[in-house]
């Protein structure tokens, strides 16, 4: 049986959902409370790393395989670039111009709501996706890597 003992598996199957939710909360409320895209993305990645440590690498790969994770990484980077480019295209005011806030929300009292701050929550979501997928990829790639000399004895440690 791969992975750790049944105690660790049971606890982590409950806790991983809460960690994932907490990461989403940190990302979505990044413009109102402490946190943001980077910290939330690392929390999302660590929920999958917990899955990988408790259940073994194959189980985590079934949930989020390497091609899917690398595609998510690219989608996050593209979204961040697209948000930046929209500012350039919208009013020709410049790269990374906060066009949603400047055009539609300025002067209104939306300021402490969840939907506020224009492009900042969108950038937060993009960066969270990107950081989460890429840090999960780092752990996945590092755990896949086996030097040729110790290929035999590392299998039983897994």
């Amino acid at each position: 049986m791969k992975g750790m003992t049944i105690i660790v598996k049971t606890i982590s199957s409950w806790v991983k959902v809460l960690i994932f939710l907490f990461g989403i909360y940190i990302i979505l409320f990044g413009h109102l409370t402490p946190g943001g895209g980077f910290a939330g993305g690392v929390i999302l990645a660590s929920s999958y790393v917990l899955l990988m440590l408790a259940f073994g690498r194959e189980f985590a790969e079934e949930n989020l395989s390497l091609p899917v994770a690398s595609k998510l990484d690219c989608v996050g980077a593209l979204l961040f670039g697209a948000v930046a480019l929209c500012g350039l295209l919208y009013g020709a005011a410049g790269f990374f111009w906060n066009f949603i806030h400047q055009e539609y929300l300025v002067g209104t009292d939306y300021e402490f709501n969840l939907v506020s701050a224009g492009t900042i929550p969108l950038s937060n979501i993009a960066i969270g996706l990107k950081v989460g997928a890429s840090l999960f990829l780092v752990v996945l790639v590092l755990s896949m890597f086996r030097p040729d000399t110790s290929a035999e004895d590392s299998n039983e440690k897994e």
Binding site: F96, H101, I120
Partner: peptide, 15 residues
């Protein structure tokens, strides 16, 4: 005022 983000750190690093 300029970005609408209550968290000043977010308004600095993303705007």
């Amino acid at each position: 005022q300029k970005t609408g983000a209550a968290n000043i750190v977010a308004s600095v690093i993303l705007d």
